[in-house]
C-alpha cells in the first residue's frame, strides 16, 4: 500500500488581521478620549446619586490644603488665590455661555467655608447647574 506523503504545514502566525484589531482598539480609545484638565489629587466624597457630568463643563477644584484651581473645561486648570477670583472667572464664562455647567471637585475633608465661598461666587455669577464630583458609595462603607 502506498501512503500519501504528509503535507508539511508552514509555521506562520496569521498577522494580517492584527492591524484591524488594533485599529478597533484605537477607535475605542479615541471615542472615550477626554483630556484631563485637572490633576489635583483629592479624595472625593461618596454618594449614591451620581449623574453623568456634561462634557466640557467648567471645573473648580479644591485640594486638601485649600488651594483652588479653575478651568473652563478646555485647557489645563490654573491656580487662583481666592474665592473672589472664582467669581470673576465664573462671571466671564457665564457671559459667553449662560447654560454652562460647573463642576466642583473638592476633597471630602476640605473645610466647608472654602466650598461655601465658591458656591456663593457661582450663585452671584448666576450659574445654573453645579455638579459635586463624587465617588460611588459601596455597600460596605456606606
Amino acid at each position: 500500500m502506498r501512503l500519501k506523503a504528509q503535507q508539511q504545514s508552514k509555521a506562520v502566525i496569521p498577522t494580517a488581521s492584527m492591524a484591524d484589531i488594533a485599529f478597533l482598539l484605537i477607535i475605542f480609545f479615541m471615542l472615550t478620549f477626554q483630556i484631563e484638565v485637572d490633576r489635583t489629587q483629592v479624595t472625593l466624597p461618596q454618594t449614591m446619586i451620581r449623574l453623568e457630568v456634561p462634557k466640557k463643563s467648567a471645573l473648580i477644584s479644591v485640594d486638601p490644603k485649600g488651594q483652588i484651581r479653575v478651568s473652563s473645561g478646555e485647557e489645563m486648570s490654573v491656580p487662583v488665590p481666592s474665592e473672589e477670583d472664582v467669581l470673576s472667572f465664573a462671571a466671564g464664562i457665564v457671559q459667553t455661555d449662560p447654560s454652562k455647567t460647573f463642576v466642583i471637585k473638592a476633597d471630602k475633608e476640605t473645610p466647608y467655608r472654602i466650598v461655601d465661598g465658591i458656591i456663593d461666587a457661582l450663585k452671584q455669577a448666576k450659574v445654573r447647574d453645579v455638579y459635586l464630583l463624587s465617588q460611588q458609595e459601596t455597600v460596605d462603607n456606606s
Binding site: L51, R128, D129, V130, Y131, L133, S134
Partner: peptide, 13 residues
C-alpha cells in the same frame, strides 16, 4: 485617556 470620575451629584442653583 483617563477614566477619571466624571459623575457627581447635581445641584440646580
Amino acid at each position: 485617556t483617563t477614566f477619571a470620575a466624571t459623575r457627581g451629584l447635581d445641584w440646580a442653583l
